[in-house]
Amino acid sequence: MMTQFGEERAHVPVFRDRVCQLLAPSLDRPDAVCVDATLGAGGHSEALLRAHPDLTMIGIDRDPDALELAGHRLAHFGQRFIAVHAVYDDIHTVLADRGLDGIDGALFDLGVSSMQLDQATRGFAYAQDAPLDMRMDQSVGITAEEVVNTYTERELARILRLYGEERFAPRIAKSIVAARKRAPITSSRQLADLVRDAVPAATRRRGGNPSKRSFQALRIEVNAELDVLREALPRAMDLLRPNGRIVVLSYHSLEDRIVKRAIAERTVSTAPAGLPMDVPGTEPTFTWLTKGAQPPSDREIAGNPRAASAKLRAARRLETHGNDQETHSHGEDER
Rank of each mutant, 00 (worst) to 15 (best):
D61Q: 10
V112C: 06
R62G: 04
I258M: 04
N323W: 11
R219D: 01
L132G: 03
R245G: 02
I258T: 02
Y163T: 11
T282W: 03
G331V: 11
I301V: 14
H330I: 14
E332F: 10
E326C: 05
T270V: 13
A236S: 08
R213T: 11
I176M: 08
A202S: 15
F168V: 02
S188H: 01
L95I: 10
E326L: 07
R80H: 03
L110S: 02
E145W: 02
T56H: 03
A37P: 00
D109P: 00
A314E: 02
D193M: 06
Q294N: 04
S297V: 12
P210C: 05
A262V: 06
S250H: 02
E155C: 07
S113P: 03
R335T: 11
G281R: 10
A224Q: 15
L275K: 09
R167Y: 00
L275W: 09
R161D: 15
I258D: 00
L132N: 07
M1V: 11
P184K: 13
A130E: 08
A293S: 12
D101K: 09
L117V: 06
L107M: 13
G281F: 05
E332M: 07
R154S: 13
P242C: 10
F81Y: 14
S253H: 08
T38N: 04
T38M: 09
G40H: 09
P272R: 00
A264H: 14
A178K: 06
L318W: 01
R335A: 06
E166D: 09
P305G: 07
K260M: 12
F286V: 06
E145L: 09
S211A: 15
S329Q: 14
L312F: 07
L254S: 07
L55C: 05
H328T: 12
H321A: 12
P234A: 13
D104A: 14
D298M: 10
R158V: 08
L132Y: 02
T320L: 03
R171S: 00
L194Q: 00
R335V: 09
M277K: 14
M57A: 15
R161I: 08
E7R: 14
P305R: 14
V195G: 01
L312I: 06
